[in-house]
């Protein structure tokens, strides 16, 4: 990352904050001087103090991922001050719900054909398949991880117009 320029010039964070970049600077490995915007975004939305606290709370090998996720969230909040990256979550949640509804409808069609052909065995097979939607790790409406936005509660037929740009991740 910033290893080549680490000893020569200060990292993007120290440059932005106009301070001396010490060898133990917590930002230096993750905010190279070639990417000044990355730190500027993070600092504008979260503040350098909060970011350094968050980085100190995670393990060193997780810090790069943490910085990148914070940088993504900050950029999303700058682009969309109202929803930030939560807008993308909302779009994805609607996509999941639409797919599940389509899957249920297709499974119902399949069940009709299967029931006509094989009254016992095929029915139970696809019945099990239908039950597999609420598996572990899925972000359902009851999971607490679900973001309930106003448009997510609209009927599926009326929400054909998606919010532009939110799905670009």
């Amino acid at each position: 990352m910033a290893s080549s320029s680490y000893s020569n010039s200060p990292c993007a964070a120290c440059k932005f904050l106009r301070r001396k970049c010490m060898p133990d600077c917590i930002f230096a490995p993750y905010f190279p001087p070639e990417e000044p915007q990355k730190f500027a975004n993070v600092h504008k939305i979260f503040g350098a103090s909060n970011v350094s606290k968050l980085l100190n709370e995670v393990l060193p090998h997780q810090r790069e991922d943490a910085v990148n996720s914070l940088a993504y969230e900050a950029e999303a909040r700058i682009k969309d001050p109202v929803y930030g990256c939560v807008g993308a979550i909302s779009v994805l949640q609607r996509h999941v719900l639409r797919l599940q509804k389509e899957l249920e409808a297709t499974n119902a069609d399949l069940m009709r054909y299967a029931c006509n052909d094989m009254p016992t065995s095929t029915t139970s097979q696809y019945g099990r398949r239908n039950m597999g939607h609420e598996g572990a790790g899925s972000i359902g409406q009851s999971s607490g991880l679900y973001y309930s936005s106003p448009w997510n509660n609209e009927p599926y037929d009326q929400d054909s117009q998606e919010r532009g740009g939110d799905g670009n991740i």
Binding site: L54, A66, S69, L70, Y72, V96, G137, I139
Partner: peptide, 17 residues
């Protein structure tokens, strides 16, 4: 999710999709 935050949810949703 201190490391990934909302990105964890986004990854899960993409996987679910």
């Amino acid at each position: 999710f201190p490391v990934y935050g909302c990105c964890w949810i986004i990854c899960q949703l993409k996987y679910q999709i």
